[in-house]
Nucleic acid binder design. Structure first.
Length: 882
DNA sequence: CGCTAGTACTCAA
DNA sequence: GTACTAGCG
């Protein structure tokens, strides 16, 4: 919902503009908006599950519009749901289901327009739809056109902000005023099909006369937004933007404002409001984002020293590196954790949606060969003309013999990976057809993506922490700890990372996001499946340094490309690919010197080749490659990314899909893992602070497992004031925020079933027997005996089992298990076997639920999350009462 | 005057 | 997600 009324408030500084003013620049696009608008036009098809690509065409039209005006779009998609939003998502889902039923009823009665109206309300933009826009098998899609994109681990908003903040892009296109709160400097709203938009610049805030924002930092602005009500916190009823602004100007700090409002007594301020406020602020600040540079998760802003991820449960669990990468590339559905379902198999697209009358290239208009799974003959209205620069780079055809290594495949990860069984990468939806799995080694180059997270510069990092924490002091009234926090994991684990040979060197070139790897098809002479290329996960530094084109901009190092064609790290399609686009005639492109000059040359007939597999550029330095290199398996249309590290032979034989691979030893974000080295950070004088701490006192409602409204959670708690006298105070205070949230959230969501997560995935296309046979069953609660112990889809676990298992989990995490969440009375129980299953059963889950015959399903949780407390969220997502 | 809640809208190139 | 507006305090 964004911040209600924020845009009108900023009316003064809204500047009508045109995207061409951003020619030569890179602009990140909140893709959800375009997908949603595009979906409007085909709501009925989507609601009824009929394959359609209209929304893709709509979005691509916009993409081409941007390119037409010389703007390089970077498409950003929403990822997984934040834990705190799962509840609202359930409600939405319910509403959509109702609308769908209504629509069907109207349709049956022949009331077409009423039906359509209902279907519009029933439509949801799903990751599968995002995938349609991304996937390469549609020529009319991002990969095929070399558009950079990234799927955020959670929300797109912080991801967009991060891209801008870190210099990947210069502005952000969105309709969501939240972006300003996340700290974006240049936001473009209301972009229409012609390129008109309204820009709001952070720098203009001071020019706001009606509402004086002069002298306001990002923090104050954010405080105002949160106070007035935001996605993460409902406002105090009766307190809107203007009041928040007025009071903040007067009292400066949100605590004071809240105090004043309470004293005034006109408005009802929930008891937990201050906690909630802090939590909302922490969510705005530290949400997970995908860093294209390190190809790993990080935070929008580094989390404050003295706190760990466990203190920020509301920002969602840290995803395992390879999983995060899969999500970022759009291949893994961040919600279902499954490989994304291809809604529109290419065969359909090729036969049903080709706008033939606009097809200027006769050769490409031909139907694909029979059986070609990804005919790729779908030409958009705007597809390139014959002779125009193709997206495929013939030069790269040469790179046929490179090694293939995947994320998480480095030697050091091997033990963990083998222990965790094979991640369920293969899919019946994607492995089907043609039965032509091709070892990628034979067809293309893959990149080595170092499995080890980038080790931050500790000195700089410590400065960051200092600055960051100092800010936090001011905002939240906390003090910094005098020393960095203790390491939360075994020392050897940290050590291992430190000495890892796979640690990437500090990048010298800013890689692009996920983009297309242009590559010539038919390495082996015309066979359809051989076209390589595909998504490149850019690596840095580029393997070769020759012919690098570097941006003159000091703060933004853009994509570098080598003339040899070997290191176009995630380069988006060449700027000259705009040439001859129907609908958007090629402008005289102002090729900014910082942008790429690509060696790509025109090529005809590329379109009949299937899409490229996921390929990763080879990185330097290469991680230890002493173990058998795993390989990417190329199936038909989409890509099967097998990230296991088993032997090739092992991989070639599909194993029963097992889930929830335990992530390697990287249980912490890079930031966190670096904390152990921050002990030398300058101490600061500790001051006493009063911190409100909420004490959990579970009430009768919890025991009954009854659904509790928001307020009841807070009623169950009593507030106590404690004096915090040292550095512990900071992390302790944050922890208390976390604990209160946990209590509230767990209660809310644990009792709510989440049918969405439990619902079986219905493939739009029948899977081939081959793949279906090794595909796991539906993710519903399944009859016993159908699952391996690893999947343990639905297990009724007696309390005793839970106790036994939770103790195991605790032994896995060395420390920092919050007392609030620690299982009680099970200290000495022996470890149990179902490690993952059980880890999910964190003690944060209300015991009464367990005792009330809650069915626990861990099967929909293949995400390797090692932190047991974070796993609790997954648990709540799959709990349902019978 | 500020705020809330309800309604309408997004496509169709 | 937005914008607009009637109605309420």
């Amino acid at each position: 919902m964004g911040i209600g009324g924020l845009l009108p408030l900023l009316k003064e500084i809204q500047k009508p503009c045109h995207v061409k003013e951003w020619a030569g620049k890179r602009v990140a696009v909140d893709s959800y908006v375009w997908l949603h608008r595009g979906a409007y036009g085909c709501a009925e098809d989507l609601a009824l599950g009929r394959p359609t690509v209209k929304y893709v065409n709509y979005a691509m039209h916009r993409v081409r519009m941007l390119k037409h005006f010389g703007v390089t779009p970077v498409m950003v998609f929403d990822g997984g749901l934040l834990p705190s939003k799962m509840g609202t998502e359930d409600e939405r889902e319910k509403r959509r289901a109702e609308a769908l039923a209504k629509g069907n009823a109207f349709r049956a009665e022949g009331k077409a327009s009423l039906a359509r109206e209902a279907f519009v309300k029933a439509v949801d933009v799903t990751p599968a739809m995002a995938y349609q826009l991304i996937k390469a098998s549609l020529l009319n899609a991002l990969r095929a056109e070399g558009i950079e994109y990234v799927v955020a681990p959670y929300e797109a908003d912080p991801q967009l902000a991060y891209l801008e903040k870190s210099g990947f892009v210069d502005a952000v296109v969105t309709e969501d005023s939240d972006l300003l709160v996340f700290g974006c400097r240049n936001v473009l709203f209301k972009l229409d099909g012609e390129g008109n938009c309204v820009s709001i610049s952070r720098d203009d805030f001071s020019k706001c006369r009606e509402y004086n924002l002069a002298g306001w930092s990002d923090d104050e602005f954010r405080h105002m937004a949160i106070l007035s009500g935001c996605d993460y916190l409902d406002s105090v009823v009766g307190l809107g933007l203007k009041t928040a602004h007025r009071l903040l100007r007067k009292y400066k700090k949100p605590e004071k404002v809240i105090q004043f409002v309470r004293l005034e007594g006109n408005l009802n301020v929930p008891r937990s409001y201050l906690d909630d406020f802090r939590r909302a602020e922490l969510t705005f600040l530290h949400q997970h984002v995908f860093d294209p540079l390190t190809k790993s998760l990080t935070h929008l802003t580094p989390i404050p020293a003295g706190t760990t991820l466990e203190d920020l449960p509301f920002i969602g669990p840290l995803l395992a590196p390879d999983f995060a990468l899969g999500v970022a590339q759009g291949d893994i559905d961040p919600i279902t954790k499954e490989r994304v379902v291809d809604l529109v198999p290419s065969s359909f697209a090729a036969t049903n949606d080709t706008p033939k009358k606009f097809d200027a290239n006769g050769s490409r208009a031909k139907a694909p060969k029979a059986g070609t799974p990804s005919g790729g003959t779908l030409l958009s209205f705007f597809s390139r003309q014959a002779g125009s620069p193709a997206v495929v780079n013939p030069v790269k055809a040469v790179k046929a013999q490179a090694r293939v290594t995947l994320v998480g495949s480095a030697k050091e990860n091997k033990p963990a990976v083998t222990q965790q069984e094979e991640p369920a990468r293969a899919s019946k939806f994607f492995g089907a057809g043609r039965g032509s799995k091709v070892e990628l080694q034979k067809s293309s180059t893959a990149a080595i993506v170092p499995p080890v997270m980038h080790e931050p510069d500790h000195e700089a990092l410590s400065d960051d922490f200092e600055a960051e924490a100092a800010l936090r002091d001011i905002e939240l009234g906390f003090d910094l700890p005098s020393e960095a926090a203790e390491i939360d994991e075994p020392e050897e684990a940290v050590e291992e990372r430190r000495v890892s040979p796979a640690e990437p060197a500090p990048p010298t070139h800013r890689p692009a996001l996920c983009g297309i790897q242009e590559q010539a098809p038919d390495v082996d002479g015309g066979s359809v499946q051989s076209e390589a290329g595909g998504i490149v996960v850019p690596v840095s530094p580029p393997p070769t340094s020759e012919a690098l084109v570097e941006t003159p901009s000091p703060e933004r190092q853009k994509v570098a490309i080598s003339a040899s064609g070997q290191s176009d790290v995630g380069v988006s399609s060449p700027a000259d690919s705009n040439v001859a686009q129907a609908g958007w005639p090629t402008p005289e492109l102002d090729q900014s010197p910082g942008l790429l000059s690509s060696p790509i040359t025109p090529r005809n007939g590329f379109s009949i080749s299937p899409p490229p597999p996921i390929v990763k550029e080879e990185a330097a330095p290469a991680p230890a490659q002493t173990t058998a290199a795993p390989f990417v398996t190329l199936s038909s249309d989409p890509i099967i990314l097998s990230s296991d590290t088993g032997s090739c032979a092992e991989q070639a034989t599909p194993r029963p899909p097992k889930r929830s691979p335990r992530p390697p030893k990287q249980r912490k974000s890079p930031i966190l893992s670096a904390k152990g080295k921050l002990k030398t950070a300058p101490s600061r004088e500790a001051r006493s602070k009063t911190v409100a701490v909420w004490e959990d006192t579970p009430g009768p409602r919890a025991a009954s497992g009854e659904s509790a409204p928001k307020t009841s959670a807070s009623k169950r708690r009593k507030q106590t004031e404690v004096i915090v006298d040292d550095d512990e105070g900071v992390s302790e205070a944050v922890r208390s925020v976390a604990a209160s949230w946990r209590a509230k959230f767990m209660l809310q969501t644990a009792v709510k079933s989440t049918p969405r997560l439990l619902a079986p995935v219905q493939p739009p296309t029948p899977a081939s027997p081959t793949n279906a046979s090794r595909q796991k069953g539906p993710r519903t609660v399944a009859p016993p005996g159908k699952h391996s112990s690893a999947t343990a889809s639905a297990t009724r676990l007696p309390l005793s089992t839970l106790r036994a298992n939770t103790s195991l989990k605790r032994s896995a995490t060395t420390s920092a298990v919050d007392e609030n969440c620690r299982p009680r009375g099970d200290e000495d129980l022996a470890p149990a076997k179902k490690r993952r299953t059980v880890s999910a059963l964190d003690c944060t889950v209300d015991r009464s639920l367990i005792e009330n015959d809650v069915v626990v399903s861990s099967s929909s949780s293949p995400v390797p999350i090692t932190n047991p407390r974070l796993l609790a969220f997954r648990f709540t997502g799959t709990v349902r009462r019978e």
